[in-house]
Write a protein that binds this DNA or RNA. Structure first.
Ligand code: MN
Ligand code: MN
Ligand code: ZN
Ligand code: ZN
Lengths: 136, 136
DNA sequence: TCTAACATTAGACCTAGTCTAAATTTGTGG
DNA sequence: CCACAAATTTAGACTAGGTCTAATGTTAGA
C-alpha cells in the first residue's frame, strides 16, 4: 500500500519522499475529513521528526495537484477531503463529523440557468444529525 | 435609521448601547458579507475607541439572537450575513465576493428522503464568476 | 562523483479570535 | 436624586491555525 501511494504521487508529478508518502497515506486513505493539525498529529506518531511546515506544504501540494480538496464547511476548520469527485456534505450538528453524500442522492435544478453568473462548481451543504442506529 | 437599529436590538432583548448600535448599523444594513475584522475596521472609523472584544462580542450576540448568521464558505474567512432567511450563496472566484442567490432560484430535491440523516437546514454553495455587465 | 535543484527542518512570525481583570456605564429601588 | 448592583466595555495578554525564512539535508542526473 505504501507502493500504491508513492506511485500515485509520482504519477501526479510529486516526488515521493518518505515524509510525503507518510502524510499522503494518512490523508488519502481514510474517508475522514481531517484538518491539517490532525494530520500533523497522526503522522507524527509514526514519524516523529516530521515538521509542521512539511505537513502543510505537502497537503497544499496535494490540493494543487488535484489529489485532495480542501473544504471550509464550518467555522474555524479547514479540512481535507480525499474524495475529489463531485459530492455533497452533511455536517453533524452534534458531533461535528462531516459525512459524504453521493452526488446522485440529490438533484439540484436551475444552476445552469442562473442569471448573471457562470457557475463552475457547486455542492449542497447540509446541517443535521445522523439518525439513531437502525434496529438494534 | 439609528432609531431603527436600536429598536431592532431592543426588540431582540439586546440593550442598545452606543457601541452596539454602531456595530449593528454597519453589519445589519448593507447586503455585503463582512468579516469581523472588516466590521471592526469600519466601525472604528466613526467610533475610534471601540475595542475588538466589543465588536466580536456584539457580532456573536447578534448571531445568538438570530439577527445575523455566520457563514464559513471559503478558507480563512468567517463572514456575517444580515439576511437570515434561507438562501443560497455563490462565491466569485475572481473577486472573492459572496453573492446571495434567492431560495426559489434553485430547486433541490430528495433532501427529505436522505437515508440515515435528519437534515435541519441546507443551502447550495456555488463557485463561479459574475458575467460581464450586460449590454453596455 | 559533483553539483544544482529539490525537500525538510526549527522556529520566528502573522492573523483571527478568545479570555481576563479592571474600569465605566447604566438601570433601579429607596 | 443617590447608592449600588448588574451589565457593558476596554486594553492587552493569550491561543490556535497557518505561513515564511534561512539553514541544512537529500537526490537526480550530467
Ligand atoms: Mn490521519
Ligand atoms: Mn461595514
Ligand atoms: Zn467529502
Ligand atoms: Zn447571504
Amino acid at each position: 500500500m505504501a507502493e500504491n501511494v508513492a506511485d500515485k504521487l509520482a504519477r501526479s508529478g510529486i516526488r515521493p519522499s518518505a515524509q510525503r508518502v507518510a502524510i499522503a497515506e494518512h490523508v488519502l486513505v481514510s474517508s475522514l475529513h481531517p484538518s491539517a493539525e490532525q494530520v500533523f498529529a497522526s503522522v507524527r506518531l509514526m514519524f516523529p521528526q516530521v515538521s509542521r511546515a512539511t505537513v502543510y506544504n505537502t497537503l497544499n501540494l496535494l490540493v494543487e495537484k488535484g489529489l485532495l480538496r480542501s473544504l471550509a464547511l464550518s467555522e474555524g476548520n479547514v479540512v481535507f477531503d480525499p474524495k475529489v469527485e463531485a459530492h455533497h456534505h452533511l455536517v453533524d450538528e452534534s458531533t461535528g463529523e462531516i459525512h459524504d453524500i453521493p452526488w446522485d442522492d440529490l438533484v439540484v435544478q436551475n444552476v445552469e440557468s442562473l442569471k448573471g453568473f457562470d457557475v463552475s462548481e457547486y455542492q449542497v451543504v447540509m446541517r443535521g444529525r445522523s439518525r439513531e442506529n437502525p434496529k438494534p
